[in-house]
Simulated scan of single mutants.
Amino acid sequence: MNKQIIEYIQSMAAEIHFSGSVFVKQGDQILADCSFGLANRSEKMNNVSDTKFGMASGSKLFTAIAICQLAEEGRLSYYSLLGDCLNQSFPHFSQEITIHQLLTHTSGIPDYFDEEVMEDYEELWINKPMYHVRGPKDFLPLFQNEKMKYDPGSKFHYNNAGYILLGLIVEQVSGMAFTDYVEKNIFERVVMDAGYFETDSLPSKAALGYIDQSDGSWKTNIFSLPAKGGPDGGAYITACGIIQLWEALTAGRLLDKQNVQQLLAPHIRVDDSTAYGYGIWMKTEKHSVTKHLLMGYDPGVNFRAAFYPHPSLCISVCSNQSGGAFDMIKGIESELMKELTS
């Protein structure tokens, strides 16, 4: 452990009232493994190193890995057409949409949560009760009859519905429920403590998500999210678990070298310094990737993970509040960079 980094994390956590877990590893050395706040406020249960947290959209990476595994097996290709892989009706969708476009948010399909139309994710569940949403197909009525937003491949537009379709493709091609496929072919192979849990029946050591109000009151997020996560987000992991997954992925234990490169390549430019691969963001400099990023936000959930190839550095921050992970990881990165350059 790195005493200086741990002291910095403790100070930062106190300053921002952070609730969650932090795990930092460089090469084979664990620099920090710290937890703060409460996993269950009513029962006064602390967050600890093996507490499992929701990771929201950070779990799109699992969906991308699942698709890449099926591509590696020759059961589909990255440029297969949506209509050739999924037996569902989309009356207004283009016939030219490919799996690659769904993976890179360039398909142009309508999203079920359109940030141009609504700002609050909780608005979704006014007419579609969240307790009915327990599988990918349950999202289809929210977008399958809407019109295209853009021509396929014309632009990047972050899109949760595209990953719902990818999850349905995993189900149709594999013959397994999406969450069963990921748990068997990713979580079990990595031997990581993770899962897709129903919010109304969480297992032990799974943190409840909390939404804090300006008057000091709070509520859990059980009525703010789908009852069970799926292809576009909502898996539960430990802070160290996502680093275990990264190590397994880059060591070739989940995909061969060619498909790992396909997954992690900067396929689409988002801005001058940001690109997107398959289910993962990245920072680039002079056409090379300097950092891979996972991010997730839901009401009562905040998640960030950063993976630096040079140096071999991984940082994971999980929070069971609506904020905190970004500030925490930004501060840790800054502090570590000082050490590495001193």
Rank of each mutant, 00 (worst) to 15 (best):
G241E: 05
T274Y: 09
S77N: 08
N185L: 09
A64K: 11
C68G: 08
G27C: 08
K286T: 14
D180P: 00
P266R: 02
N221R: 02
H17I: 13
S217T: 14
F113T: 11
I280F: 06
E96H: 13
E7T: 10
Y181F: 15
L245A: 08
N127H: 14
Y210T: 02
G323S: 15
Y158N: 09
H92K: 10
A71T: 05
Q26I: 13
G58Y: 00
I109Q: 01
N259M: 09
T274A: 15
I109N: 03
R75Q: 15
A207L: 10
Q26P: 02
L142M: 15
E285Q: 14
M55G: 05
P136V: 11
L165M: 10
Q172P: 13
A39Q: 04
M118H: 12
P136D: 05
H92L: 10
G108S: 05
L249D: 07
I99T: 04
Q10C: 15
Q88W: 08
G252H: 01
Q10S: 06
V182E: 04
L86F: 03
A325C: 08
I6K: 04
L208W: 01
H292E: 00
H267N: 04
V190Y: 07
G167R: 09
K149F: 09
G20E: 03
D50C: 12
K25Y: 01
M295E: 04
A235D: 05
R189N: 12
E123Q: 15
P299A: 03
L103M: 06
Y236K: 09
L264E: 01
A56W: 01
E116F: 11
N160S: 13
A56Q: 00
Q213V: 05
G233K: 01
Q144G: 09
E335W: 06
R75N: 12
I169N: 00
R134I: 14
E72I: 13
K60P: 00
E339P: 02
L82V: 08
E146Y: 13
Q258C: 05
L31D: 08
I329D: 01
S57Q: 00
W246G: 11
S288W: 05
S312Q: 11
N145F: 09
N302A: 09
E183T: 15
I16L: 06
L168Q: 00
N221F: 00
S89Y: 03
Q213F: 14
M176I: 13
I164H: 02
I268L: 11
E198D: 14
S319E: 07
C240P: 00
L142F: 12
K291R: 08
S342M: 14
L140D: 02
S42Q: 15
Q244M: 10
Y308N: 07
F303K: 08
K286C: 12
P226R: 01
A325N: 10
F93N: 02
D200H: 10
G175N: 04
